[in-house]
Simulated scan of single mutants.
Amino acid sequence: MPPAEQILTPAALRDWPLPMPDGGKNSRGRVLVIGGARTAPGAAMLAGQAALRVGAGVLTLAVAESVAGPVAAAVPECAVLWLAETAAGSVAASSAEAIQRALGSAAAILIGPGLDDIDETADLIAALVSAADEDLPIVLDAYAIGALGQLPRAAREALAGRLLLTPNHQELERLLEAESEPAGSGSGPASGTDGPADPQRLLAERYGAVLSSDNRIVTPAGDRWEVPAGHSGLGTSGSGDVLAGALVGLLARGAEPVQAACWATYLHAAAGDRLAARVGSLGFLARELLDQLPLVLTELQA
Rank of each mutant, 00 (worst) to 15 (best):
16 W>A: 11
96 A>N: 05
47 A>T: 10
6 Q>T: 13
291 D>W: 03
89 G>H: 02
138 I>M: 09
217 I>E: 01
272 G>P: 02
19 P>L: 08
14 R>Y: 14
224 R>N: 10
181 E>Q: 12
271 A>N: 12
142 A>W: 02
274 R>I: 00
247 L>G: 02
176 L>W: 09
193 T>W: 10
271 A>R: 05
281 S>P: 01
94 S>W: 07
282 L>I: 04
172 L>K: 10
219 T>D: 06
257 P>M: 15
275 L>N: 00
291 D>T: 00
163 L>T: 00
84 A>S: 07
270 A>T: 00
143 Y>I: 01
115 L>R: 03
223 D>H: 03
295 L>M: 14
273 D>V: 03
32 L>F: 11
223 D>I: 00
151 L>W: 03
259 Q>T: 12
92 A>F: 04
57 G>A: 14
106 A>M: 13
159 L>Q: 09
149 G>A: 15
36 G>M: 09
26 N>H: 09
106 A>Y: 09
291 D>M: 05
244 A>E: 07
210 V>W: 04
267 L>S: 11
231 H>C: 13
256 E>C: 14
237 S>H: 14
19 P>E: 05
41 P>C: 15
245 G>D: 01
164 L>C: 04
128 L>N: 01
140 L>H: 06
120 E>S: 11
18 L>D: 10
187 S>E: 11
148 L>R: 11
204 A>E: 00
179 E>G: 09
239 S>G: 15
265 T>F: 09
301 Q>E: 15
216 R>I: 11
10 P>F: 14
5 E>P: 06
230 G>R: 02
96 A>L: 09
287 R>P: 05
32 L>W: 06
125 I>D: 01
286 A>M: 14
57 G>R: 05
7 I>V: 11
246 A>I: 03
129 V>S: 03
230 G>T: 04
298 T>Y: 00
176 L>C: 12
269 A>C: 14
43 A>E: 12
33 V>D: 01
67 V>I: 04
243 L>Y: 00
38 R>K: 15
53 R>P: 07
192 G>M: 06
174 R>A: 08
68 A>N: 08
187 S>V: 07
115 L>M: 06
64 A>N: 07
101 R>Y: 03
255 A>D: 03
296 V>I: 02
47 A>K: 08
213 S>Y: 06
161 G>R: 10
203 L>W: 10
185 S>D: 10
225 W>R: 08
154 A>Y: 10
67 V>Q: 03
163 L>A: 04
288 E>N: 07
46 L>S: 09
48 G>D: 14
249 G>K: 03
108 A>C: 13
173 E>D: 14
103 L>N: 08
206 R>T: 07
217 I>G: 02
30 R>T: 12
94 S>E: 15
161 G>W: 07
102 A>D: 13
260 A>M: 06
192 G>V: 01
40 A>P: 07
297 L>S: 03
144 A>N: 05
20 M>D: 13
104 G>N: 13
263 W>G: 05
93 A>T: 07
45 M>Y: 13
33 V>M: 02
160 A>N: 12
294 P>Y: 12
49 Q>R: 11
28 R>L: 13
96 A>R: 01
11 A>P: 09
261 A>K: 07
51 A>H: 06
148 L>E: 14
44 A>E: 07
3 P>C: 05
158 A>I: 00
147 A>K: 03
227 V>S: 12
121 T>D: 06
299 E>M: 06
